[in-house]
Write a protein that binds this DNA or RNA. Structure first.
Lengths: 143, 143
DNA sequence: GAAGATTGAATAATCAATCTTC
DNA sequence: GAAGATTGATTATTCAATCTTC
């Protein structure tokens, strides 16, 4: 087994997958994949804080804070006071953010179909899912 | 099959894998993973040009050119005239670049062992290799 | 005119320092 | 003192414009 080849394939496939979906979302919905990903986390996380976004996407706190800044700038999210902890804010989708999510969702799923489902057999896709969750579950500490 | 979950696991595992190896290479060998990756391509590509690096790593030509600039700055590679085409240069490893590659190689492989081999059964790792090359081979055009 | 490469500007990420609240 | 977040500086990436050579 050529580990370096696996690494190379993994990194490059991820790069091309990301870029391909990003291009589609930008042209169809005027939203970058990075922003869409943040919107998804916010939609899925009750009382979502900046910290939760950083954790969910494996990015830094500073990066998450700036991503929220950008989304707030274009009116897709809003910060409101967190009644439970005055150090943080709750980040919420605005109505416009909701609409973006609903519009971009189908395009996102369509790209995933074309790039993950189409090239693989049903069983291979299922195996990929199992393998990836095993890899994430057994990742070395604090890397 | 939850495609969004597969996407999320893929992207996040790649991020954590990259960051983990990058941290190791920086602290052990003072070389970022991005640079190490470029050195590998140069070592494996006869008469390597900037264009070849961009193609091998799925990055832009401009990005590859600047990566070579940085490596040249620290003395790990050198550009020399391309006798076959005066528009481009041949990028070569210097003796120092060779040494970096030889020193960082074992650390790189060690991390791959810990992060890819250790968490998976032999057959799962083999499946992952097959699936990733299928995905790369059947990627949609020019994305 | 096309291909290879370089450069400067814009974008987005990390990191360190700092501030407020727990 | 620790935790959550913000900000400024650095780093690295893409993109567009440009230049040279094919």
């Amino acid at each position: 087994m050529d580990l370096r080849q696996v690494f190379d394939d993994l990194v490059r496939f991820e790069t091309e997958l990301w870029n391909g979906i990003d291009t589609r979302l930008r042209s169809d919905c005027s939203v970058p994949l990075g922003s869409f990903n943040v919107l998804l986390v916010i939609a899925d996380t009750p009382s979502c804080r900046v910290n939760d976004i950083a954790g969910a996407l494996s990015i830094t706190i500073g990066g998450a804070s700036q991503a929220v800044d950008r989304l707030e700038q274009v009116g897709h999210v809003a910060r409101r006071a967190n009644p439970a902890d005055r150090r943080s804010s709750i980040v919420e989708l605005t109505a416009a953010g909701q609409r973006v999510l609903e519009q971009a969702g189908p395009a996102f799923d369509d790209e995933l179909e074309a790039r993950l489902v189409a090239p693989l057999s049903k069983s291979a896709l299922a195996q990929l899912g199992v393998i990836l969750s095993a890899l994430r579950a057994n990742a070395p500490r604090s890397s």
